[in-house]
Design a protein around this nucleic acid. Structure first.
Length: 185
DNA sequence: TTGAGGATTGGCT
DNA sequence: GCCAATCCTCAAA
């Protein structure tokens, strides 16, 4: 399976968010591999998007959103959770990223259950903080290159049927944008 | 230096 | 449905 090239991420953040649906997220830990198909994403842009971390200005936390595309942006929130994003934007725009909210487990399901300490398959990776826990993604993975075969990378995946567009979840401002994208079951 | 709040989750009512 | 857990980050002073 081919890894998505840097060019894939050099388009409008909203377009990349849609196109990431059906792609495969691969996580290598030691000598085993975990993978899953991306089923839900959200787009976060720059100063046209009040819900984005990059809305105001560049800071220590959000600086990768202003850098090269195809790089991971991991942040910590609510005192206990990590969320996993991919930097994506067209070249004229200074910042933007796509939040990966859910994947459909494919490989290494047992390891994910171990990591989450959970038997129920349904709740394994169907939320942004759940999937980081299942894949053991932490702040250590801030700013890594997802276009190279390393600990985490994204490859070609499956064709998807239909995209459902909704308002983004858990935000105060910017609800008028339908920038949450899901694959129809 | 400090305090308020958050791109969430799971457990309890 | 509601709320606590829990700590990092930002912005104000």
């Amino acid at each position: 399976m081919n890894i998505l090239p840097r060019k894939f991420y050099q388009k409008d953040t909203v377009i990349v968010a849609k196109r990431l649906l059906g792609k495969k997220l691969v996580r290598k830990i030691g000598n085993y591999e975990i993978s899953g198909i991306i089923t839900e994403t959200e787009a976060y842009r720059h100063n046209d998007d009040p819900a984005s971390h990059a809305y105001r200005k560049i800071t220590d936390r959000n600086k990768v959103m202003f850098g090269d595309v195809g790089i991971s942006y991991v942040y910590f929130t609510y005192g206990m959770h990590y969320c996993f994003n991919i930097v994506a934007k067209k070249s004229k725009v200074p910042a933007g990223a796509v939040l990966i909210r859910a994947i459909q487990p494919e490989k290494g399901i047992k390891k994910m259950q171990e990591n989450r300490n959970l038997k129920n398959l349904k709740n394994l990776t169907n939320g942004p903080a759940k999937l980081t826990q299942a894949l053991k993604i932490t702040k250590k993975h801030y700013g890594i290159d997802l276009t190279k075969k390393s600990e985490i990378y994204i490859t070609e995946g499956e064709k998807i049927k239909k995209i459902i567009e909704s308002p983004r979840i858990g935000i105060k401002n910017g609800k008028e944008f339908l920038w949450n994208f899901k694959v129809e079951n």
